[in-house]
Design a protein around this nucleic acid. Sequence first.
DNA 1: AAGTGATCATAA
DNA 2: TTATGATCACTT
Length: 217
Amino acid sequence: MLSEAHLLERCNAIEGMSFSQLAMALQLRIPTHPLQRKGWLGQAVELALGTTAGNQSRPDFIELGIELKTLPINQSGKPAESTFVTTIPLLTVHQQTWQNSTCFAKLRRVLWLPVEGDTRIAFEHRRLGQALLWSPTPDEEAILCQDWSELTFMIGTGRLEKIDARYGEYLQVRPKAANAKSLCYGFNEEGGRFLTLPRGFYLRTRFTEALLGRHGL
DNA sequence: AAGTGATCATAA
DNA sequence: TTATGATCACTT
């Protein structure tokens, strides 16, 4: 039975490794083209730590309810990118509540793995940092809940096209698609359906930056 | 430089 | 196509 302690031991075992050392240990090849290695590290770390969710809409470590997120840190010591949380089922998300939402399921407990994301360092030389097992504070959760509720309400009431990435204090809604041709259905203002880009919830960098700061990282 | 919108890889 | 893993690239 996997426990949080076991999980942290696994993290200790890979801490400090370079991406190429990790690839070696897992017998993986790092794609040569930068465009082809998006997401590579995340998949490699999943393999190394033994996640169990596959492509289900559930936290990576199902039994523990823990979501795994790599967090690239730029040359300024801050998160280089926003963090994708979950795809939004545009036609049904309004039936969820924050407490039973897939978004909260993934954010209630997160294993953050900071990694070097400084583009001046060759990809294969970047190293894995120290993992952090985290949960939102009540204050953070209140704002996440507020963001989620407002955005979900807009989606459910046909105002999706009015939403852009500027909405939300911690959470934002942005496209999450293979390309502009990959479409799905959402509600229009008449309550009918229209084709639109798939969307996802993302955490702003100012949020992940602050949570790292609170833990002295 | 930061932030938003667009895109890339893989599995089922 | 849907989910997962994200970062790229252009605008501001």
